[in-house]
Each structure stands twice: as structure tokens, then as C-alpha cells.
């Protein structure tokens, strides 16, 4: 029961949804959409559960006065305040204030920090140890140069070469990777849907 049930449910819902995806939708009526709606509902519920768990874990830390308790307290208060505001006054100016003046600057600055780290990553990638590093270095410097307005003044070839690089080698590189990934995913999802693989989450 414990082992069979999840697999049976996975296979059955997978089959119905797949038939809904490829069929013209008449055979199964509203069932595929209903299952998908149910799964979306559960996904949202799972998000709430994850947040609740986060609140509980940090709340416990704060109450027990463990080291870092102060930070945990800030986290829990910020979370409850934002959640409460969002639920009581959805779409309000107050919630917008939190989003504009707290959420956005915090996340944007955290992303901005990566500007520093990407340079040190590049420094390490640019050590010319083999042919691949040479290609990487030349391409990335060229793509940075091609971004600049001044490059067009230097030579009209630069924008043209930039467009060509994007259209041919970059397209080929990313497309090859996309195809490889797609084939892998295809095999993996088929194994799930036929019950050959048991995903970890069902253990």
C-alpha cells in the first residue's frame, strides 16, 4: 500500500494529463484540467507549509535564545508582519510600501553584490591553461566590447561579428545543450510515468 499507492496515483494522473495534453480534450472531459488545478492548489499549499515551517524553526530558535536568536526573531517578525499585511490588506499601499522600500532594495543589492564576485570568477576562469580558456576569454571580452556603442565607431565589423557569434556558435552551443537536456528529461519523465523510477519525494 505504502509503496504502490503513490506510484499508482503518479501513473494514473500522469496518463490523464498527458492524454489531455496531446488529445483534443474531448475524450476525458474536464478531468485533466481538474487534476492540474488540484496540483496547482497543492503546490500553493506546499509553499505556505514551507513558509510555516521556516517560521516555526526560527521561532523555536528565538524562543530558546540560541545564538543568532536575534536574527531569527527579526526574520519571524518580518515574515508575520508581511504575511499579515498581505492577507488583511491585499493590494494596498502599505503592502506596496514594504515591497518598494524593503523587499526591492534588499534583493536588488544582494544581486548587485554579484557584480564583484563575477569579476573574481572571471579572473580565475581567464588563466590560460588550455585552448578552452583562450576561447572563453576572447569571447567574453569580445561580447563585452560588442556591447559598447564605441565599438561601432571602432569598426562596423564588430557589431556584425557580434551578431554572427550569437547567431551561429552561441546558438549551436546552447541548442546542443537544450537538446541534450531535453532528451534526458524525456527519458526521466517517461520512467516516472511508467513507474520504473520512484522519485525520492515518494519514499
Amino acid at each position: 500500500m505504502r509503496r504502490v499507492l503513490p506510484i499508482a496515483v503518479t501513473c494514473l494522473t500522469g496518463l490523464v494529463v498527458l492524454l489531455g495534453f496531446f488529445g483534443n480534450g474531448d475524450i476525458l472531459g474536464g478531468w485533466p484540467n481538474l487534476l492540474v488545478e488540484g496540483a496547482a492548489f497543492l503546490a500553493a499549499l506546499a509553499l505556505l507549509m514551507g513558509v510555516a515551517h521556516l517560521a516555526l524553526a526560527h521561532g523555536r530558535r528565538a524562543v530558546r535564545g540560541e545564538p543568532q536568536a536575534g536574527y531569527s526573531l527579526v526574520l519571524v517578525i518580518a515574515m508575520l508582519a508581511t504575511f499579515g499585511l498581505g492577507v488583511v490588506l491585499p493590494g494596498s499601499a502599505e503592502l506596496a510600501w514594504v515591497f518598494d522600500h524593503l523587499y526591492t532594495p534588499l534583493q536588488a543589492t544582494m544581486t548587485a553584490l554579484l557584480a564583484f564576485f563575477v569579476v573574481s570568477a572571471a579572473y580565475r576562469a581567464f588563466r590560460l591553461r588550455h585552448a578552452e580558456a583562450v576561447v572563453l576569454l576572447i569571447t567574453s571580452l569580445f561580447m563585452l566590447l560588442g556591447q559598447l556603442a564605441v565599438s561601432e565607431r571602432l569598426s562596423p565589423i564588430i557589431p556584425a561579428l557580434r551578431e554572427w557569434t550569437l547567431a551561429i556558435p552561441v546558438t549551436a552551443g546552447v541548442r546542443g545543450i537544450l537538446l541534450g537536456t531535453a532528451l534526458g528529461t524525456l527519458a526521466a519523465t517517461l520512467r516516472i510515468l511508467t513507474g520504473i523510477d520512484r522519485p525520492q519525494a515518494l519514499e
Binding site: L12, G14, L18, L193
Partner: peptide
């Protein structure tokens, strides 16, 4: 969980 898995995989 099976419902989430099945719809996601399909």
C-alpha cells in the same frame, strides 16, 4: 505527492 509528481512529469 503522486498527484503533484504525475501532473508535473506529464
Amino acid at each position: 505527492l503522486g498527484l503533484l509528481m504525475g501532473t508535473g512529469a506529464a
